[in-house]
Design a protein around this nucleic acid. Structure first.
Lengths: 68, 68
DNA sequence: TCGCAGTGGGGTAATTTGGGAC
DNA sequence: CTTGTCCAAATTACCCCACTGC
């Protein structure tokens, strides 16, 4: 059934995502605040992003919501 | 986090590519719109170009499509 | 505990976008 | 046909400082 293994739910730091997109870490934070990127927060308030999410976005794959 | 594997191509900003080609950023944008240049967008809509692609073009290496 | 690098928050300047026209 | 410049708006980059993460 061509079951895809794990989704590599690896967490990336703002600088990691920023490097991937060639933007400023602050910009990545802005995306998270804008709700364009899913973010997990540490107990200290820092954000962490899903690598799978970032990879999908890099490929130009929008968030598929509702496959009606 | 200071070092990261280069699993992704280096991305250039419109002004970077424009400087490399000695043209206006607007012209670079037109190339992207014309499909002559591969480009990925940031979540904000800004374009980022592959340095490998630009370098290849700068060297006069046309994109072989169709192998006709 | 200390220190270093990274991160968050706010604000401002610079860049990029989009379309139309010459 | 291609390139450069005008307009307005949106997005991004860099400044400060205080705190987090390791």
């Amino acid at each position: 059934m061509t079951v895809k293994p794990a989704v590599t739910d690896n967490l990336l730091t703002p600088s990691e995502v920023a490097t991937l997109f060639r933007v400023d870490p602050k910009t990545v934070t802005r995306w998270a605040k804008a709700g364009k990127l899913s973010s997990i927060r540490t107990l200290g308030g820092h954000r962490r992003y899903l690598e799978s999410e970032v990879q999908a976005l890099l490929q130009g794959i929008p968030q598929q919501r509702g496959t009606a």
